[in-house]
Structures are given as C-alpha cells and as structure tokens.
Computed example of a mutant assay.
Amino acid sequence: MGNADLRQLAVLREVSFDDLSGTVAVDAHNWLYRYLTTTVRFTSSHKYTHDGEEVANLIGVVQGLPKFFEHDLSPVFVFDGGVTELKDAEVSDRQAQRERYEEQLEEAREGGDAAEIATLESRTQRLTPTILETTRELLSLLDVPVIEAPAEGEAQASYMARKGAVDYVGSEDYDTLLLGAPLTLRQLTSKGDPELMDFEATLDEHDLTWEQLVDVGILCGTDFNEGVSGIGPKTAVKLVREHGDLWGVLEARDVYVENADRIRELFLHPATTDDYDFDPDLDPDVDAARTYVCEEWGVPEGEVDRGFERIEESVTQTGLDDWL
C-alpha cells in the first residue's frame, strides 16, 4: 500500500494540530486497518462479542475520531470501491502472506506464546464485510460523512483535494503523492502531531513535473509493478530528468515495464467520481453511538468510555459547527 521509497523524495514536515483547520478526506481502509491492528495488539482481550464477531474496529473508531473532533479538522471518510485489475497480483501476494501468518498464529497459540500471538493476530487482520458495515454505521451515527469511491479510496480522496472540495488527504500511503494530492496528513493514527506531505514542494525540490514524479515511482516500483532492478529513488530522479520521461529511461536502459502506460494513467487519471456531497458541520449522536457499540455489539463500556467522553467534551467545547 504505497511506495515507501518515496519517503526519501517527499517534502515532509511535522505540523501541530493547533495550526491545522479545514476538512480532511480520510482514506478509510488505510486509517481503519491501522486502528484495527493496533487495537488488536494493545487493548484488552475484549475484541469479540459473545457470538464471536470481531469488534476491534468499533473500538478503534471511537478511540480515533477524537483526534479530529478535538481540533479544527472535519473528517470525511472515503471507502474503497473495486480493486484495480493490475493490483490483483499484490492482493494475491498479501493473501498468501496472511495465510502464512495464520499458520504461524496457530502454532503460537498451541505453544502459548502470548507476545507472538499478539503480533500475529495483528498481522492477520482483514477488513471483513462486517467490519466495513459496522464502521459505516458507527460513522453515520456520529454524523461523519462517508463517500464511496468507484475504485481506490486514496485516489478519490486525492481527487477531491485537487478539486478543492477538501483541504487535506489523510493517509499513511505515499501513493497520494503520485496521485497529486496537494497536502497529505500522515500519522493521524499515531500519538503526537501529524506529518504534512507537500506535493508542490516535492516537485519543486526535485525539479520534476507531476508526470515525471509518477515515472520515478514506476521505476522504483508501485502497487501495480515491480521496480527496475538497480534503480532507487534518487537514481530514478536523475534518470528521468536526464532522459525526460519514463520511456526515455526505459529505452536508454533497454528495459521493459509491463503495462507501464496503464500504470501511469492509474495515477494521473484514476477512476473517480464527482457524485459526492457532504456537510462538514457535524452533529454526532453520541448516545445512539454508545448504544450501538456497547449494547448491540457487546463492546465493554470500559473499552470505549474515554473515547466517547472525549467526543462529548469536544462537542461541548467547540460546538463542532464552528469548525470551518
């Protein structure tokens, strides 16, 4: 999910929540997966209802939303649609890796290794239909807008940011840089202040166009292709500037990247929609959300009390309708 090599090129700076305001389009699957895995590892054992349904996502949502509510950030959650065909290989690889982890998890359980069990449980988490459905319902009760992307959520969120519909994209993926998101807030699921990734500043830093930055990403490797052997991010920048674009580099190196033109288009012109409408002024029904989480899904109140308290406090202190 994203090309971490791009971190070596991205212009990043730590920013204070106190200096941020506006609307952030959150890559829902990315955000939720991170809270899901950390909740599984670091909360108590109450991750399942008495019927055996996973509920760690509900705990994660309640714990994670106050980070927005307590500051001048209005969240809009963008959910993935269909998986791009070219990503099938990566999805297959992840599934195979997850199956290996599941086998290791069974061995750890048989051996009673608590630390290894916790680690492997987080690695085998998946966003099941139930998890996605209950997350959408909880967000709805808290009046947080939900947008359904036609394909990749991060692509839709980046498109909305480029159109000026939102001020930031919220994602841990560096792919938002290749997708042209002007400003990306990272580390929204971590303690402390976030990190701001600046698209235009990155282009200026390396004297590249957007198209050339995508070419650099393809040379290094993306979710849709393996990189060219021996070419790292700094070398890729040098080669693209020297030869003009991806095709010039491939010709000069006498190498081939399968589906290169399609991959380029997936970043420059991804499947997106203008069919979205949302109100950033939120009016969360905390009582209904608490009932949904604790009574309908059986999450112990102690797991979510503080999160709901923080949401209620933020409603009282800021009114939420004054965010923008």
Rank of each mutant, 00 (worst) to 15 (best):
L9A: 08
E14K: 14
V26I: 14
S44G: 15
H46V: 10
K47I: 15
D51Q: 11
V55A: 11
G64H: 05
F69M: 02
F69Y: 11
V76S: 09
E103V: 05
E107R: 01
A108H: 04
T124F: 08
T124Q: 05
Q125C: 11
E137F: 11
S140N: 14
L142Y: 06
A149S: 06
G153K: 02
A155P: 00
A157Y: 01
M160L: 05
A161I: 10
V166W: 06
V169Q: 05
V169D: 00
E172M: 07
L179T: 10
L179N: 06
L188H: 00
K191Y: 14
L196R: 02
F199A: 11
H206T: 08
T209I: 14
W210S: 13
V214R: 08
G217E: 14
E226D: 12
V228Q: 06
P233N: 11
V237R: 06
K238G: 00
H243P: 04
L250W: 13
A252G: 01
R262C: 05
R262P: 02
I263C: 03
R264D: 08
D275F: 08
D285V: 10
V286F: 04
A289I: 05
R290F: 07
I311H: 00
E313N: 07
V315C: 09
Q317N: 06
W323I: 04
W323H: 12
L324M: 13
